[in-house]
Design a protein around this nucleic acid. Structure first.
Length: 284
DNA sequence: CGCCAGGATTGAA
DNA sequence: TTCAATCATGGC
């Protein structure tokens, strides 16, 4: 029977850490309630014992789309066992128990991370919110809730102008987003087709898009496509690797990448997320 | 190689 | 209260 409420079973799931760890930019928290929009649907989430309670505006028959986004069926204990058993990883895993990787829509993830370059998380949130208000479609919400908008599809953004995108405060990223949207809207690159190719091949394809360098490509590979070995190296991770694994001697960017690729195992992307969240929120 | 292009927020002076 | 630093892509 279709219902507006469900509890998705999950153990070791820290909803707040997961939705507030720089993977997604559109979830809003009030108390312990998280509100967002997924695939044009308004969604409210709350942690309950051994699960996550979800509520939508319209009744839903199949909750697969939400399970897939939240990745509730992933067994974190098994994944954490594959991490190197060193001091930093052990500390990070202990401190960030329940931190998860989400599985996002590729376009929303790609567009968000194009907008993320040389921006901080608070600003990325504002830009993405404006983008959705200006170009997304209103989605129905319960009475008394804030208005909510879908994430604008590639053709919607492809059909606007650089000036109107700049009005969302995205600055020099506006032409990149516009060109990327046009490439995808016209079939120059198929984001769906990337699901079926190898990680290095998908990475090269993403990097053909303007505004997408190695770091942003790695974010999309990890957060949208589920390539668990993708290892985005931002300044935080670079500093952490430098400090925790190279102590004094200065490692080049190339050495950091080589180390990351060889050291953290088959779920290196998860390890990266634990290190990232650990140094950002728990250290100092 | 070095610099710049938006700009909200943070923390130092 | 100024004011420098944060963020990491691409063009020059």
């Amino acid at each position: 029977m279709p219902a507006k409420k469900v509890v998705l079973p999950a153990i070791d799931y820290d909803l707040a850490a997961t939705l507030d760890s720089g993977q997604v930019f559109r979830w809003h928290c009030a108390g312990d309630i998280w509100t967002g929009v997924l695939q044009g649907r308004w969604v409210r989430l709350r942690s309950v014992p051994n699960g996550i309670q979800a509520e939508t505006f319209k009744p839903v028959a199949d909750w697969q789309w939400l399970q897939n986004f939240l990745q509730t069926e992933v067994d974190m204990a098994t994944i954490c066992q594959t991490f190197p058993q060193d001091e930093p990883m052990t500390q990070a895993v202990a401190a960030c128990r329940g931190l998860r990787l989400l599985r996002q829509d590729p376009w929303e993830c790609l567009a968000s991370f194009i907008l993320s370059s040389t921006k901080q998380i608070v600003q990325i949130r504002q830009i993405v919110r404006r983008l959705c208000e200006d170009f997304g479609d209103p989605v129905p919400v319960p009475a008394g809730e804030h208005a909510a908008f879908s994430f604008p599809a590639p053709d919607k953004i492809a059909g606007t102008t650089e000036a109107r995108l700049r009005a969302c405060k995205m600055g020099f990223r506006a032409p990149y987003l516009l060109a990327a949207a046009k490439t995808i809207a016209t079939g120059g690159i198929s984001l769906e087709a990337l699901r079926g190719v190898s990680r290095p091949e998908a990475r090269l394809k993403l990097m053909e898009l303007p505004g997408v360098g190695g770091k942003i490509a790695d974010c999309v590979l990890l957060f949208a496509y589920g390539f668990d070995t993708a290892f985005p190296v931002d300044v935080w991770i670079a500093r952490a690797l430098q400090q925790l694994y190279f102590s004094r001697k200065a490692a080049t960017e190339k050495e950091l990448h080589a180390f990351a690729a060889s050291y953290f195992g088959p779920h290196a992307g998860y390890a990266q997320q634990y290190l990232f969240h650990y140094i950002r929120t728990k250290l100092n």
